[in-house]
Amino acid sequence: MYNVGMITVRLPQKKMELELPGPRRVMDLLAEAGVRPTTVIVTQGRRLLTKDHRVEDGTTIDVISVVSGG
């Protein structure tokens, strides 16, 4: 069960999920999650979010790493 009063931040490649209080900007959520902004894109459903986008409580966002190795 998700807490409707929180923001759910999913990091699928790390198989992690965080619940953080909102409203907060994407860049602040990334800082809290320990993720550098130049290494990810942040999505909400089919929408891409800019780093200054304000995320409201009850929202689920995905943080997708873009770094490929090898």
Binding site: Q13, T38, T43, V66, S68, G69, G70
Partner: peptide, 27 residues
């Protein structure tokens, strides 16, 4: 940059593999 290609792929609806090659973890 990687962020730009990822954003382009996402916005164009290209369904790409997001997991990293398991062999390249220590690259």
């Amino acid at each position: 940059s990687e962020v730009e290609t990822a954003a382009y792929g996402f916005l164009k609806g290209i369904d790409y593999v997001t997991e990293e090659c398991p062999m390249s973890e220590d690259a």
